[in-house]
Design a binder for these strands. Structure first.
Lengths: 349, 349
DNA sequence: TTGTACGCGTTATCAT
DNA sequence: ATGATAACGCGTACAA
């Protein structure tokens, strides 16, 4: 029923030239050969009239290049859907890819399926990968990279030399916690964004928390630490648990805005006022941080930029085709002080 | 450097059979032919040993099928990043696609680039499309569909017969507003999720608002309507503007949770208590709706299901290859009453 | 300046 | 039950 898409052959016939000429004209081949302006125009017109679009599969087969990159996430424990941040990153990737015409295949790894990175690359579906949520046990990534596949990680992968785009989680967390300490807090709790044992960023943020305390001569107390799981609900229960302690903290560093919103809710439920009775600092600066009450003090992470930088690095690696050891790209963060953090209320004295 | 991926030819050689046999074995060809179990196993072993993955481009060229579908959004005015809902839909799409092995190319239309739907389809990059944010002026969609390209819309496209997955926006909005009217409100405002003139869903929700009022004998007042733009900020300014009215509403229907959060903030800033002085009902039931204070009464929209149903319908259309006029899929919504809506405060008398 | 011919890796048809 | 062969559509070295 659909009258079969026109091929370069059809264009050639209509323009009364050979397929070679069509190809040269359409690809602007600068390879020494010259095409008369007249034929050039005839070819262009014919292509336009026929609505010709070169077939992607054929072109990719011939060129040995797909013109597609993959965005793969290994974050499957938590549903992707809950991760607002990921979306912003993808937005950045798309905005960088758009002008180049390179397409984006998005895939989520799953335990009951073959590793998408492997199949995407081995099948020649993509020319390179942007990978998030990679963990040390994803050894295939190293193999692919060693073979020359361009790969860029979002977030560091400890013990690998894969190129990555990231922020300095330790420093950012330290700055956030120092802000609390500067306000005069001495009992500061921490709710991670994820269990630190499974997530590099979570581990680093916890390390920043610890480091800030110790730089001020305060001791790190395990009992003031809880694990969040990327969502509000986990923040609610973690904060509730912290508030139940007799010597509860006067401030808490929550390593994710989404988790922090749950913490905020827990405080409301417990009748604990923020920031008077409890100071809260989040992490990410999602747009909602501005709009909750009180507005959330948080660490701004350039989500979109992470995506666009990752895409830029990847495209460069693909086009130079040299497995050029791109140095890590560490983007800057910024503490945004809003209303959820203030000095501790002096109850005694 | 990378030692060139093994081809079916390599597998054939290693297994001492022809490429034909390899193909039969690997594709489980049930086409009448039988392969001796011995050779079958030899082929399988060879493929495994070589780490053979069939080349996607070659397969697609030969099969005239890409094994890829596209997810295209025309929502470019507002950055995709702000649309948390879209992410949930994509999650649903991916979860449906995953087990089938069909890949997903994600793209956003842009004014300064050729329509992604056209190029994706014409280049044979995808076998079908899931499209969001389609507007009547995207006439190419109709052309593609008429030619037999499987297409599923998320959201209705007025004046077209394209298959779509949607909710009943009119009815859902009507239910939400009736909830406010049932509580005793008589002056009810409305903040749309987007300018209704450009967005079918926004227009429908506004229509539901109007319809609810009129069914109770209340008049629709243009002056109590504001337009949101998908984000919190627009909700803040819209609500502020409504609150400045001398005869301000005692309740407001906000056709998007994100916009509603801005409205909530505006109320806080203005010193207007929710729900005592102002009842608010949102739309979407994003996870954050539970965690703001007060928790937001809203309309639950099955975001993930929208995605998975769209994918399912699309896959069916692709595999039956009949341009089978799939009837529209209308998913159900549900009003979730939380704390942001209550009866009006009787100030006078 | 243009046309001819081959190959990219697969799958499907047809003999054997 | 298996193997040779053509074709999918394009890009390019080479010949004219």
């Amino acid at each position: 029923m659909p009258p079969r898409s026109p091929t370069s052959h059809d264009v050639a016939r209509l323009a009364s030239v050979s397929r070679t000429t069509v190809s040269y004209v359409l690809n602007n081949s600068d390879s020494g050969i010259a095409i008369s302006e007249a034929t050039r125009q005839r070819v262009l017109d014919a292509a336009r009239d026929l609505g010709y679009h070169p077939n992607a599969a054929a072109r990719s087969l011939r060129r040995q290049r797909a013109g597609v990159v993959g965005l793969v996430t290994y974050d499957t424990s938590n549903r992707m859907g809950s991760n607002a941040f990921m979306w912003l990153v993808m937005d950045g990737v798309l905005s960088e890819l758009g002008p180049t015409g390179v397409r984006l295949i998005v895939e989520a790894a799953s335990d009951d399926r073959p590793d998408p990175c492997v199949s995407l690359v081995r099948e020649g579906h993509v020319d390179g990968l942007i990978v998030t949520g990679a963990r040390p046990e994803n050894t295939e990534l190293r193999v692919l990279h060693a073979e020359g596949t361009p790969i860029v990680l979002w977030g560091r992968l400890s013990g690998s030399d894969l190129p990555y785009v990231d922020i300095d989680n330790v420093a950012a967390a330290r700055t956030a916690v120092e802000h609390l300490l500067d306000l005069g807090h001495t009992r500061v709790g921490c709710i991670t964004n994820a269990p630190p044992l499974t997530d590099t960023a979570a581990a680093d943020r916890l390390e920043g928390f610890r480091s800030a305390l110790e730089s001020r001569g305060l001791s790190f107390e395990e009992s003031l630490v809880r694990s969040g799981h990327f969502d509000e609900r986990s923040g609610l229960s973690a904060m509730t648990s912290l508030l139940e302690r007799p010597d509860r903290p006067t401030a808490v560093f929550v390593a994710s805005d989404e988790v922090a919103l749950g913490a905020l809710k827990a405080a409301k439920i417990a009748g604990v006022r923020v920031p008077d009775d409890l100071a809260i600092v989040g992490f990410d600066d999602l747009s909602i941080a501005t709009f909750v009450e009180p507005a959330l003090t948080t660490v701004r992470v350039p989500a979109g930029e992470i995506g666009s930088v990752a895409a830029r690095v990847l495209l460069a690696a693909i086009s130079t085709s040299t497995s050029l050891r791109e140095p890590a790209q560490v983007l800057t963060t910024e503490l945004i002080v809003r209303d959820s953090s203030g000095p501790p209320q002096r109850l005694s004295g």
